[in-house]
């Protein structure tokens, strides 16, 4: 186990290094931020001073090496726009995004697994077909359109739920700000979380359904019934524990996706998270923030992969960590 984790961490470091190069060069190619940063009425000397102070006059490889050097010390540069460390900007907004992603994940699991199991147990029933149709819609309707429709329906027409922000009632748990402790907080998070969850909810439903359909025909399920177990125990223990393996794997891997793709949802619902920060930073070509954002996302994915493998080995006794192809 320890050897496995150490090996994985070393691989992760390599992945992060490669990604840092790709990200940095990608952003380098995208555009020149000086146009945006330098005031229109600045003269040539002022302009030159700004460029030099940001290190933008140096060739690419020098800029990159400098970036690496600072990154190794935990410094991902200063935002051109806010004049604050980019990492700090992201860390300030990360909890809001995490909160949204966790809420969306909960919704996907709590609704998706039961819906999928129900549909998988009786695939021919009318309600199963309705569930599956719903999941196809969840997959294919664009997130931003659904988000806008939700705002129109629940905020504008019905006036049930607020449409923007995360509310004022923020509490701190272990040093992290969260709005999930109050009803007001939940009322704010509900719409964006459902919006963000829709895609994952559909995926979990389909996965749980496919898993259930496969597992219920296995001999071990029939044997469990032959022992005289109740249907409830057969489904909740024998079937569920087997379908959890693929569901947990996919969910874990896609949690990073939830965080990364919260961009759209955060923009629609004016959620003060890193997705919104990213969109704003792209608009202003705030390079350090974009780079820092991408680096954090890479780290998140790497970490989640590792966590999934560990969960996987806990759920499935046949898998030992050493066996997982890293």
């Amino acid at each position: 186990m320890t050897v496995f984790i150490i090996r994985r961490l070393m691989q992760a470091a390599l992945v992060v290094l490669v990604m840092s190069f790709l990200v940095f060069s990608g952003v380098f190619l995208v555009g020149d931020p000086t146009e945006i940063l330098v005031a229109d009425d600045a003269d040539q000397a002022e302009r030159q001073a700004i460029i030099e102070s940001l290190g933008l006059d140096k060739p690419f490889h020098i800029q990159y090496l400098r970036f690496l050097q600072k990154a190794a010390q935990g410094n991902l540069g200063e935002s051109f726009v806010f004049n604050e460390p980019a990492l700090q900007l992201i860390m300030d907004r990360l909890p809001a995004t995490m909160e949204l992603a966790v809420a969306a994940l909960l919704i996907s699991v709590v609704l998706g697994i039961p819906l999928g199991v129900i549909a998988g147990l009786r695939p021919e029933a009318a309600y199963s077909k309705i569930i599956m149709t719903g999941s196809i819609l969840g997959f294919s309707l664009p997130t931003f359109w659904v988000g806008i429709m939700m705002i129109i329906l629940f905020s504008v027409q019905l006036g049930w739920l607020p449409s923007t922000g995360r509310g004022d009632e923020i509490h701190y748990v272990l040093g992290f700000p969260t709005s999930l402790l109050t009803l007001d907080g939940w009322s704010h998070v509900l719409l964006p979380a459902v919006n963000l969850a829709l895609f994952k909810l559909s995926a979990v439903t389909r996965l749980a359904r496919a898993g259930t359909r496969e597992v219920v025909h296995q001999d071990y399920v029939k044997f469990a019934r032959a022992k005289g177990l109740t249907d409830r125990r057969v489904i909740f223990v024998h079937v569920l524990k087997n379908i959890l393996i693929p569901v947990v794997t996919v969910l874990g891997l896609e949690f990073g996706g939830l965080v990364a793709f919260s961009v759209v949802t955060e923009t629609i619902f004016a959620w003060p998270g890193i997705g919104k920060l990213l969109i704003d930073s792209i608009g202003l070509l705030d390079r350090p923030v974009i780079v820092a954002y991408l680096m954090i996302i890479v780290l998140l994915f790497v970490f989640l992969n590792l966590a999934v493998d560990i969960c996987y080995s806990l759920l499935d006794p046949r898998v030992r960590l050493q066996d997982i192809k890293a």
Partner: peptide, 22 residues
């Protein structure tokens, strides 16, 4: 259900598949 496994038990054909792997 009350009879199964209690009054009448069955042993299946393929031992590799009868026990739940997890």
């Amino acid at each position: 259900r009350r009879l199964r496994g209690n009054n009448i038990a069955m042993i299946f054909q393929d031992p590799m598949m009868t026990l739940n792997p997890v």
